[in-house]
């Protein structure tokens, strides 16, 4: 039982990070029907920003919790700026072009950013300081749930609730939903679609940055390639949940994280990815629109 719970919480932690990244994929897809392949790199850049800020503030003798907060804030600002800029220079000029063009541009962006970080930093793994504090009461769950697991899960829940409320109740949230449902009509009621798209990229990138700093601190090392792998998994999670659906991305992340954790724990860690992608294939066969995705109904 203890082993099961350990795997369960381990899966939740993993799944939380997948969910945070998957939200960016799904939100962008919902608005402009583009798979933003550079999104994993945004997450990686968030982690690197966290590393640099933590290094500087650590050397200056800042207390641990302040370092964590500053690292996350800096990562969010930096990644959001990257997401915003990438949309402006790599996708916006291609709006209205054939669908393949922005997709190729996205893959190009992804390769460019990986190599840019590799050249600017290093291709080796860099140790990432453990920024997440030890929480006293988590000790009672020793062997099942670590402090950093707890913090990652709770942070993800808070972020998801905040995002849901934002989308449901704010004016910008409504404009985002309206744009996703009918772009022409959104424009005709006065929504600036450019602004909506920019905000979507900023929010998605910010969530990925939070995920990047949290998981880097949990695992303890990063390199320029982490965005590719995590991005692929998170994209899987987004498709699993139903691409375009926000609750779908959250659920898809959790399902994927748990699947991997149990496959690793009960079968073999060699099969982690096999199970993840087998799950994806199964879903695509039996429910092509994903768990929460709606089948597109063509109303005439």
């Amino acid at each position: 039982m203890e082993y099961f719970l350990e795997l369960f919480f381990g899966g939740l932690t993993r799944g939380s990070i997948y969910a945070l990244i998957a939200l960016g994929y799904t939100m962008v897809y919902g608005i402009i029907e583009l798979i933003n392949f550079a999104h994993g790199e945004i997450y990686m850049i968030g982690a690197f920003t966290g590393l640099i800020v933590a290094g500087v503030l650590g050397a200056l003798g800042f207390p641990g919790s302040a370092i964590l907060v500053f690292a996350i804030v800096a990562a969010v600002i930096y990644s959001a700026a990257y997401g915003f800029t990438i949309e402006k220079i790599a996708y916006r000029p291609l709006r209205g072009a054939a669908r393949l063009s922005p997709l190729i541009s996205a893959i190009g962006m992804s390769i460019f950013l990986q190599n840019y970080v590799m050249l600017a930093q290093t291709s080796d793994f860099l140790p990432f300081p453990s920024l997440l504090p030890e929480l006293g009461f988590v000790k009672h769950f020793k062997g099942i749930l670590g402090s950093s697991d707890f913090i990652i899960i709770v942070t993800t829940i808070v972020v998801c609730v905040a995002l849901t409320l934002f989308i449901k109740y704010t004016k910008m949230g409504k404009a985002m939903r309206a744009t996703a449902q009918n772009r022409t009509m959104a424009q005709l009621v006065g929504v600036s679609v450019d602004t909506v798209i920019s905000v979507t990229f900023i929010i998605g990138s910010s969530l990925a940055a939070v995920g990047g700093v949290l998981i880097a601190s949990h695992i303890g090392q990063i390199n320029y390639y982490i965005g590719f792998i995590a991005g692929l998994k998170a994209f899987t999670a987004a498709v699993l949940g139903g691409i375009g659906s926000i609750p779908g991305a959250m659920l898809g992340g959790l399902v994927l994280g748990l699947t991997e954790a149990f496959a690793t724990g009960y079968v073999s860690s060699d099969y982690e990815d096999v199970f993840a992608f087998a799950l994806l294939v199964l879903i695509l066969i039996f429910r092509p629109s994903g768990i929460m995705g709606k089948e597109k109904i063509q109303k005439v």
Binding site: K174, A175, A178, N182
Partner: peptide
Amino acid sequence: IFPELTVRENLDMGAF
């Protein structure tokens, strides 16, 4: 019509 927005939200969007 915005199909997944409620009637009230559709009206709200008119006053965007």
